[in-house]
């Protein structure tokens, strides 16, 4: 992690040998794996593209009719088909059509812009098992810029909610900050994704539920979504299985609401803590300096990774917590003092 004044800290030192931070390097691969596993467990996998659906009268217990384009393996042309189902789980990403069809409402979103850059092998060596995060006003006013390794190339990018129109500048700044490390790279692909900032106002309607990005489960601060997407999907499925008593009775909205309740109860603290972290530490350059200083602390790293890997916000040792609080406030005060000084300095 690299601060606005280019102080870098390595935040993987406390990881034990069996622990590692996974990153989705190729989402297609993960998707295929999950699909195959579902098929093995007895699901019928249909390769189709959801177009729209007809809702039965509210609470009537009728079936949903969904229209989709069916694709055979390897063919490019879809065939229009329809099918009747009892319940729909929308897991179709940030631009979800299922969400649109139940009027789930919008969320604020951040845009993440990234360039996939093929860099020389000698430079790639450095990124073999590390990713970089850059923070600073130049890179993003409310998020971070990153260099993530992806198999044989790196992704250089940045994101923002508040200054979407200036994303290009931020991208240039990110590239500049990583300049020496990606020199000689070739851009092979440019991508932009919306990242949900908070859950949609409506995540369940009758027998339709949303999970993952479609529902808006992306954490602030770290911008992580895959874990919560998988987890919410699982919770939702479990709620359906439980509610239908293994398929013997029809479910209703209340059953799906139990999934929402469970999810919110389990993960709300995690989301809230990350939101607070983002608000406190991504606020300004001095705050970011303090954040990076804080991250250099071993105790912080241990706590962060515990909560990251095991997805619980764990209370720590009170004495260490107190020390941490004092140190953090110290860092913040120092950084702000320097900022005040900066306004007086003429270059």
């Amino acid at each position: 992690m690299i601060s606005p004044s280019n102080v870098g800290v390595d935040i993987g030192r406390t990881l034990k040998p069996h622990e590692y931070i996974g990153m989705v390097r190729r989402d297609e691969v993960l998707d295929a794996y999950l699909r195959e596993r579902a098929a093995e467990a007895g699901a019928t996998v249909i390769n189709g593209l959801f177009l729209k659906m007809d809702k039965p009268e509210a609470r009537s217990g009728g079936r949903y009719k969904i229209y989709y384009n069916h694709y055979e393996k390897g063919s490019v042309n879809g065939e229009k088909r329809e099918m009747e189902v009892d319940a729909v789980i929308g897991a179709d990403g940030a631009n979800s059509r299922v969400a649109k069809s139940i009027g789930a409402g919008d969320y604020d979103y951040a845009i993440a812009f990234q360039e996939r850059v093929k860099i020389p092998d000698s430079k790639m060596e450095y990124y073999k098992d590390l990713a970089e995060m850059y923070v600073g006003d130049d890179v993003s006013p409310d998020f971070y810029g990153w260099v993530f390794p992806k198999c044989d190339h790196v992704a250089v990018g940045t994101g923002t909610v508040t200054h979407k129109s200036e994303i290009k500048q931020f991208q240039a700044a990110t590239r500049l900050r990583a300049r020496d490390k990606i020199e000689g790279g070739k851009i092979i692909r440019v991508e932009a994704h919306p990242i949900p900032e908070h859950p949609r106002p409506r995540r369940v309607l009758d027998r339709v539920a949303l999970v993952g990005d479609a529902a808006g489960y992306v954490t602030k601060c770290s911008g992580e979504g895959i874990y919560f997407a998988a987890k919410s999907g699982r919770m939702c499925a479990e709620a359906i299985v439980e509610g239908s008593e293994n398929g013997t009775r029809m479910i209703n909205e209340a059953d799906l609401r139990t999934y929402l309740k469970k999810f919110d109860q389990t993960y709300w603290p995690t989301y809230k803590v990350l939101d607070i972290l983002q608000k406190v530490f991504y606020r300004s350059n001095p705050a970011r300096e303090a954040f990076v200083q804080m991250c250099a602390d071993e105790y912080v790293q241990k706590m962060t990774f515990d909560s990251y890997l095991y997805k619980r916000v764990v209370p720590g040792n009170p004495l260490d917590d107190l020390k941490l609080a004092v140190n953090t406030i110290g860092s913040l005060v120092r950084a702000n003092a320097l900022k005040n000084e900066m306004s007086k300095v003429a270059l």
């Binding site: 606005p4 280019n6 850059y134 130049d138 990583a178 950084a335 300095v345 270059l347």
Partner: peptide, 24 residues
């Protein structure tokens, strides 16, 4: 303070050969 101001105005590439070790 002067260095940080400088960096704020003209951000610099981070470097592995010469990492910043100054800690306030």
């Amino acid at each position: 303070a002067r260095r940080r101001k400088w960096l704020q105005e003209t951000p610099e590439a981070s470097s592995n050969d010469e990492p910043v070790v100054f800690d306030s």
